[in-house]
Simulated scan of single mutants.
Amino acid sequence: MMTRKRLVRGLLLGPLILAGAIQSASAEPPAPADEARAPAPPMRLFGGMGKEVKISPGEEKVLFERAGAGTLTHMWFGGDWPAWGDTRIRIYVDGEERPGIDMALFLGHGIGWGNDAAPWGTNRVGKTGRPSGVYNTYRIPFGKGVKVTATMAPSVRDPQVFWWIVRGLTDYPVRLGGITLPPSARLKLHRLDKVRAEPLKDVTIADTPARGLLYAVTFEAISDNFNYLEACLRAYPNGAKEPVWMSSGTEDYFLGTYYFNAGLYHNPVAGLTHCDPDRPGSSYRFSAYRFHEDDPVPFQEGLRLVWRNGEELDGHRYGDPKPTTLTSYVWTYEW
Rank of each mutant, 00 (worst) to 15 (best):
V195I: 12
K54N: 09
E65T: 06
P30E: 01
K54M: 10
Y284T: 05
A31R: 10
G85D: 00
D102G: 06
S223W: 01
K61H: 10
G239S: 05
P131I: 07
G263H: 09
F46P: 14
F219P: 06
E230T: 14
V195H: 08
P131M: 09
G263S: 12
G20E: 03
M75N: 12
R9K: 10
Y265W: 07
W164R: 12
V166H: 02
E230F: 08
T73P: 05
V195G: 06
V161H: 11
F106D: 01
E301G: 11
E242N: 13
G145I: 09
L63Y: 13
Y253K: 06
A197D: 04
A210S: 14
G126D: 02
D314S: 13
I89Q: 01
Q23G: 13
A19D: 07
A231K: 03
M75G: 14
R4T: 12
T71Q: 04
E220C: 13
M1G: 14
A33L: 14
G112M: 07
P15V: 04
Y258M: 13
R308M: 10
G168D: 04
E52P: 10
M43C: 13
P321D: 09
P209N: 01
T151H: 00
V174D: 03
P42K: 12
M246K: 07
V156P: 02
L233Q: 06
G79F: 05
